[in-house]
Amino acid sequence: MKEKRPLAALFFTMLKIGLFTFGGGYAMLALLENEFVEKKAWVTKDEFLDMTALAESTPGPIAINSATYIGYKKGGVPGSALATLGVCIPSFVIIFVISLFFDEFLRFELVARAFRGVQACVVYLIAAAGIKLLKSSVKDVFSAVIFAITLILCVCFSLFSVSFSSVFFILISGAAGYAAWLIRRRSSSEKEAEK
């Protein structure tokens, strides 16, 4: 497909996706694939899978990671900046307007009651996201041990108001994963030496 102004098309497509996806970055992946792999063919299917893996294993919002990647493929650094801007603008405008009126809105008794119900629902939504990820990412003994230790410690620390940032959990687990890789490598090279 030939376009006269690919950067403008990139920006407006990202704007559209930012405006119409509910449910955050994971939900956005399906729309991105539909637009950029199937309709526009700017990115191949394999490359899209690569991008998904990258977006999930680099820090930050998945939507931003994906927009930066696709934008770079189409238009270098300016492309990635435009794509990221496009995907952020709808969120920013909508939430900013809501936040201006939110406190006024909560003063209505009916709304306040509705939000007490919604708070319970938020607990379910976070738990459901966690359980879904649990099924796909905790598959061996090592990951199960890391999962169990982190879960127990983070709940206990929070209940007994021990201040311990989650950042440390992430850094320590990363180091443990790296150490486990070193041990695996050493034991496999020893086995080869025995042969």
Binding site: S57, T58, V138, I146, F147, T150, V155, A175, G177, A180
Partner: peptide, 28 residues
């Protein structure tokens, strides 16, 4: 991202992040 040591570190980070999400749900 495909380098083995990076994959090793991510193998530790992924279950940790899932535990943090589940833990937050539990606390809330």
């Amino acid at each position: 991202i495909n380098l083995p040591p990076v994959q090793g570190a991510l193998g530790g980070i992924r279950p940790c992040v899932v535990a943090l999400i589940c833990g937050t749900a539990l606390i809330m």
